[in-house]
């Protein structure tokens, strides 16, 4: 479980040019929950992620992981990172090892896991991320953009941490690669039952896989609720220049003419609902 209490963070806290990045953030996530963080650029999403994995220390407030306070109750950043791991934006720019295998094994090796177990972990995570075994001997630097991204995500998955934070994991990928990667991440989460935190600008993705959604605006927590309840407040989101899932928008347009359930966010459910209305009006498929 991860619990955040009254979390505040100021950049350059001690100087006159102090900038408040986060103000009074409060939320609790139970184990095996997926949380999406949404908000416009500069709203404090990445800062929150860095605070959660101990790379920044809070100006005020506390973060607890299984009742242990982050930074205070851990020996060092390394120990926190083995429990809370993060993949930064465009993680493919940070690859450095000679082979894909070594890149994925880097984290587990630092954790002190034996080579035989590391091999098992590497082969396990490449299945999730659809990396072929032949690719393991290749240099990560010469892979394609999508393959590099998969390799970078696999390398954080290999740490098997209790909390995994992904900062815009699908940014810059094509539609098919996006959904493939999100499915891989979701499958991994289902197996590991860890807490997954995804920072995203893709509302379809967020609505599809998240149990909870945290909305940030200029460092302030606007909402923390289930996706259905969050996206129901579409007016608030639109004021922040944030999208809502397209299906949800279509349902709202239809609702202007015919009463329909506007909580629906996915195409399949929308199809069923529309067909139900058409049938009730005597229109056949």
């Amino acid at each position: 479980m991860i619990r955040v209490e009254d979390l505040c963070y100021n950049y350059n806290a001690k100087s006159k040019s102090s900038i408040s990045a986060l103000k009074n953030i409060n939320f609790t996530l139970k184990n095996s929950t997926i949380m999406g963080i949404i908000g416009k650029t500069g709203s404090g999403k990445s800062t929150l992620a860095q605070l959660l994995c101990g790379l920044l220390s809070p100006t005020h407030g506390k973060i607890f992981l299984n009742e242990k306070e982050i930074i205070k109750d851990f020996k060092n950043t390394k120990e926190i990172c083995f429990n809370v791991t993060m993949a930064f934006q465009y993680p493919e720019n940070q690859l450095f090892e000679k082979t894909v295998y070594d890149e994925i094994a880097f984290g587990p090796r630092n954790k002190g896991i034996s080579e035989s177990k590391i091999k098992d972990i590497v082969f396990e995570v490449i299945k999730f991320t659809n990396i072929s075994e032949n690719m393991l001997k290749c240099s990560p630097i010469f892979l394609s953009g999508g393959e590099k991204r998969k390799c970078a995500i696999a390398s954080v998955m290999a740490l098997k941490s209790k909390v995994l934070i992904l900062d815009e994991p699908t940014a810059g990928l094509d539609c098919k690669s996006k959904s493939q990667l999100m499915n891989s991440i979701f499958e991994y989460h289902r197996k590991e039952k860890n807490i997954l935190i995804i920072i995203s600008h893709n509302m379809e993705e967020t609505a599809r896989i998240c149990d909870k959604v945290l909305v940030l605006d200029e460092g302030i927590q606007l909402m923390f609720d289930s996706p259905v309840k969050v996206f129901k407040n579409y007016q608030k989101l639109e004021k922040l220049n944030l999208d809502v899932p397209q299906t949800s928008q279509i349902m709202r347009y239809i609702n202007n003419e015919y009463p329909i359930n506007t909580d629906i966010m996915f195409p399949k459910e929308a199809e069923e609902e529309i067909l139900k209305i058409l049938n009730s009006k005597g229109v056949e498929r």
Binding site: N76, F82, N93, Q94, N110
Partner: peptide, 18 residues
Amino acid sequence: EETYKIINAQKVRGAHFD
């Protein structure tokens, strides 16, 4: 700035900077 990002990205994977 990029160096700082790379250091952080490796730190979260347990690199021995500390």
